[in-house]
Design a protein around this nucleic acid. Structure first.
Lengths: 198, 198
DNA sequence: GTCTATAGTTCGATAGAC
DNA sequence: GTCTATCGAACTATAGAC
């Protein structure tokens, strides 16, 4: 039992098209657009074909979450390798497309246990990795705990992206100015005075 | 036209019960539980009766949004009148019940124009009011812009609440420690050294 | 692997009796 | 103001032919 029908292979091109469509819908319309019919419609495929590749909608969403997470890890490594890793990390968290997707998936996670487990596990690890990276990047003389700074930055970045999508921008510019100030202060600490501006 | 059926009065007790039920569902289960049938079920009333009091589900949700906003304003005034207004403001933004509700309503706002307009308008005003209050509360010698600080605090508070509900807590304690430090530093500036702790 | 057909559920909303 | 009855649409998912 538990395996009534057989499924399309992981690497299948059609399977990928379904995941692509789910991602596009989540980005453009949000969680409410995610139904088997709409995903298939967007992919230009028959609704029932989706159930050949995924047992349930949860399975499709899980595949999307995993793909999103993998991509995020890759971009994280790239950010660390850049010449301004702190700024690159901030921009990774601020990427509208990725942040919107993450927010919608998190919203879905509220009432889908499998999705929630996957998201929470990854987010926990990812945030820890960011904390360790920032710990290495910031001067030892800094004022605040790395994990706390990463948490605050992540919360701010995602909030700005999701609010902007709604047309709510009050306070964004001012908050971004603070972030810019911090980045300018810490990104290239060479030997510069770290209590400079504002 | 546009007024096909007549509706129950604003002050009606039954009407309030529907709004109460919608609020409870949004708190406990999230946006996905908000359907006419489920709201009526929770209220112990017939589904069709809901449509006597509200023309559409949007109208019910709008009534809820307005009630939530009014309550928020009241609590804001109370916070300002407290002995530790900065802390009270932080706690207002961190209240799990209110923050969860706000987050779910915001999520719903994504694809409901009337709801979005109401939420965005209020949030804009409310954030501005908070900015002005903080501007008055913080010492003039402070480092950062009030509006920016309010934005960051609001984003952090809501994020911590919604993530905690999912079971994601990585970085929360560290971020809260930073907030505590700030509050301790600024809440009672009497004549104390403002570069004290850590 | 892809199709047609369809079961079974829930949804928002309305008509009309009482 | 509250009820019964119901429409039409969207939903997840399955059965079975090709």
């Amino acid at each position: 039992m538990a395996q009534p029908r057989r499924l399309g292979a992981e690497g299948s091109q059609v399977r990928t098209r379904f995941v692509d469509a789910a991602e596009a819908i989540l980005r453009d319309e949000g969680y409410h657009g995610i139904s088997a019919r709409q995903v298939a419609g967007r992919a230009g495929l028959k609704t029932q074909l989706l159930y050949y590749y995924f047992r349930t909608m949860d399975e499709l969403l899980l595949a999307l979450v995993q793909r999103v997470n993998e991509r995020r890890l890759e971009r994280f490594e790239a950010a660390l390798a850049s010449s301004e890793p702190l700024r690159a990390l901030w921009e990774l968290n601020s990427d509208p497309s990725a942040a919107t997707l993450a927010a919608e998936l998190t919203s879905i996670a509220t009432h889908r246990d499998a999705i929630r487990a996957e998201i929470v596990e990854f987010a926990t690890q990812f945030r820890r990795m960011q904390g360790e990276a920032v710990e290495r990047l910031l001067p030892a003389t800094r004022e605040y705990d790395s994990a706390g700074v990463v948490m605050i930055a992540a919360a701010l970045a995602r909030t700005i992206v999701t609010e902007s999508a709604l047309g709510l921008v009050e306070g964004h510019a001012e908050a971004l100015a603070i972030v810019e100030d911090m980045l300018a202060r810490f990104e290239k600490p060479k030997k510069a005075n770290r209590r400079a501006s504002r």
